[in-house]
């Protein structure tokens, strides 16, 4: 259960982007959040994934109230979320080869010994060949890089996935492939998902239910 209670957040305390927003995700549920660009839906997703501290409100993750955000959140809480961002170029460190990009979370939590097994398995799952995994971000396409970013989000087997406009930069076939990977992972792990986007058709077909941003802010 992921509960956002009366969240007020933004980048300036005097002028928050949104006030008092409530959203609840049942265990294993996938929710699509629809809204025009600039409305604050990405900020809400970042609050949910413990990446942006809200000005007010409460976040409850599987019954546990979040006490801190970013580095102030305990590691187990942070890694409970797998996050995929809109722009793969900006969300990949340009100096790391795709292989290291995917392995980075394992190394960060001290599970380096599993890199050799897990990384090739995930690479195969998102459809990246061995040669591509040795390349650096500037040597692959946006779609290939986003596949690697999805693999990175899944490598610690998160209980919640947060996809912030994951497919906005991608063509239809890559979009379909990535959505398939996400759904396959959710089926076997029972993870819940918050997908943010403005593509109504895609989110309505992908998610258990969709929420329009206007309903959240009005309610």
């Amino acid at each position: 259960m992921l509960e956002l209670r009366a969240i007020t957040a933004g980048y300036d305390r005097r002028a928050p982007v949104f006030r008092s927003v409530d959203l609840t995700l049942a265990p294993g549920e996938s929710v699509g959040l629809l809204g025009p660009s600039g409305c604050g839906k990405s900020t809400l997703a970042r609050v949910a994934a413990l990446l942006h501290r809200p000005d007010a409100g409460q976040l409850v993750i599987d019954g546990e109230v979040a006490r801190g955000w970013r580095h102030r959140a305990p590691r187990e809480q942070r890694t409970a979320f797998g996050v995929v961002f809109q722009q793969p170029r900006l969300s990949a460190d340009p100096r790391l080869a795709l292989r290291d990009l995917v392995a980075e979370p394992l190394r960060a939590v001290g599970r380096s010994s599993e890199v050799a097994d897990l990384v090739p398995e995930l690479a195969a799952r998102v459809g990246l060949g061995k040669d591509l995994m040795g390349r650096r971000p500037h040597e692959v396409s946006d779609g290939q890089l986003q596949r690697a970013c999805l693999a990175r989000a899944l490598v610690l087997r998160p209980r919640w996935l947060v996809c912030d406009e994951m497919t906005a930069m991608l063509d239809a076939s890559t979009t379909a492939a990535l959505v398939h990977v996400v759904e396959e992972y959710r089926r076997e792990s029972g993870a819940g998902m918050l997908a943010v986007g403005h593509d109504r058709v895609l989110l309505e077909r992908w998610c258990d239910r969709t929420v329009r941003w206007e309903e959240l802010v009005a309610g």
């Binding site: 994934a49 990446l51 942070r78 890694t79 996050v83 980075e104 939590v109």
Partner: peptide, 16 residues
């Protein structure tokens, strides 16, 4: 940069 967000979400410490 978002890749720092991704690192935090991936469990990286401040030092890392």
């Amino acid at each position: 940069r978002p890749y720092v967000d991704a690192a935090i979400s991936g469990g990286a410490s401040r030092l890392r």
